[in-house]
Computed example of a mutant assay.
Amino acid sequence: MELPVNLMFVAEGEEELGSAHLIDFVRDRVGKLSRADACLAPGASQNINGEVSMSLGCKGVVEFELVCSGEKWGRGPTERAIHSSYAAIVESPVWRLIHALASMTDPADPTRVLVEGFYDNVAPPTPEDLELVDKLAQRLDEEALRKVLGVKHFYRDLHGRDLLLKALYTTTLNIQGIYGGYTGPLVKTVLPEKASAKLESRLIANQTTKETVEKIRRHLDRHGYTDIQILEYEGQNAADDWSRTSPKAGIVQATIQAYRDFGFDPLVWPYSLGSSPQYMFTKEPLKLPFISAGIGHGARAHAPDEYYVIEGNERVRGLADAEKFYVWLLSKYSNTNLK
């Protein structure tokens, strides 16, 4: 059977590693990719209760590492860990890093970043965004979301519209992990010579990854932490720009109609809370509309027990139904101006 549309597939296996080489792939094939009308990222979009969501973009992200060492500081152990009995007279790089990290957020509200200028370029929700948020607030299954995430409470027990606005329009500064010294079984009496913390910031329009790292650097310097290094994982693409597609785009409206044809009324998100390299397709030079959509259920992304439901049940569709949906979706696209 002949397909009703022309398809170009872009598949890459480095997403969890930062998609380091995808940008090169796109740059090398701009001429070919520019012939496309839109981009679709297939995905299992049903939650555990079977409700369908689709997102029209994503937050950006920049990831980096802070390193505090006695060698750079000129204080504390400078070459190797020493016996902890000297902690009374030798300073600790680990405590110095902890104090530096603590200076970046408000103790009364750890989601509030105190880095000067951190929120300067944050764009407020558009009228289109607020319309989508209001519709989401009426139907968002917060209990299902808590269950999937394994959390008992959201921030300050927000719910509904307030919860969505906080989630979607808050730039984050998250500590992925902290390590230094001995972390094995039982104890080891050492005073470490170095400590590191891996951080990330989730960005929204119109923030940039570059300005975020620069503001962190200035904050550290102004608070006396000029010795703490920022490692940016050069060449690993540990940064993605934010991406947005208008809800008025043809591909969005056609996808919503396809969902309805299958008996679903999708929850349409202005963008997802996570990040992916969508911007490589939605911004210069391609400037294509990009959405994520599909039926079926999967969860625990990036975890060792990430899963996808194959058979389906009375609540969520299985792989066979997902395949049928994509066939129908392509037929809808064939009669639509997708841009």
Score class of each variant (00 low, 15 high):
residue 1 M to F: 08
residue 3 L to Y: 13
residue 10 V to E: 13
residue 21 H to P: 01
residue 23 I to P: 04
residue 25 F to Y: 15
residue 29 R to M: 00
residue 33 L to G: 01
residue 35 R to V: 02
residue 38 A to Q: 04
residue 44 A to C: 06
residue 48 I to Y: 06
residue 48 I to Q: 13
residue 52 V to N: 06
residue 53 S to W: 00
residue 54 M to E: 05
residue 54 M to P: 07
residue 55 S to Q: 14
residue 64 F to S: 01
residue 65 E to C: 11
residue 67 V to W: 07
residue 69 S to Q: 11
residue 69 S to G: 09
residue 73 W to F: 03
residue 75 R to Y: 11
residue 79 E to V: 02
residue 81 A to G: 11
residue 87 A to N: 07
residue 88 A to Q: 06
residue 88 A to G: 07
residue 92 S to A: 02
residue 93 P to S: 02
residue 95 W to V: 05
residue 97 L to V: 08
residue 100 A to R: 05
residue 100 A to S: 11
residue 101 L to R: 12
residue 106 D to V: 14
residue 108 A to V: 08
residue 109 D to R: 15
residue 111 T to V: 15
residue 113 V to Y: 15
residue 113 V to L: 14
residue 114 L to C: 11
residue 124 P to Q: 06
residue 125 P to D: 01
residue 127 P to K: 00
residue 154 F to Y: 15
residue 158 L to A: 13
residue 162 D to C: 03
residue 167 A to S: 13
residue 171 T to Y: 07
residue 176 Q to W: 01
residue 177 G to E: 09
residue 180 G to L: 01
residue 181 G to L: 09
residue 183 T to M: 08
residue 183 T to R: 11
residue 185 P to V: 07
residue 190 V to G: 02
residue 195 A to R: 03
residue 197 A to V: 10
residue 199 L to W: 05
residue 200 E to W: 00
residue 204 I to V: 15
residue 204 I to L: 11
residue 205 A to Y: 04
residue 207 Q to N: 09
residue 207 Q to D: 05
residue 214 E to Y: 05
residue 217 R to E: 07
residue 225 Y to R: 02
residue 227 D to F: 12
residue 237 N to I: 02
residue 240 D to P: 00
residue 248 K to R: 14
residue 252 V to Y: 01
residue 259 Y to V: 00
residue 264 F to P: 00
residue 265 D to A: 15
residue 266 P to Y: 03
residue 274 G to D: 14
residue 279 Y to T: 04
residue 280 M to S: 03
residue 282 T to E: 05
residue 291 I to K: 01
residue 296 G to C: 13
residue 297 H to N: 15
residue 302 H to N: 13
residue 305 D to V: 12
residue 306 E to C: 10
residue 309 V to E: 14
residue 316 V to C: 06
residue 317 R to A: 15
residue 319 L to R: 02
residue 327 V to Y: 08
residue 330 L to Y: 07
residue 338 L to V: 02
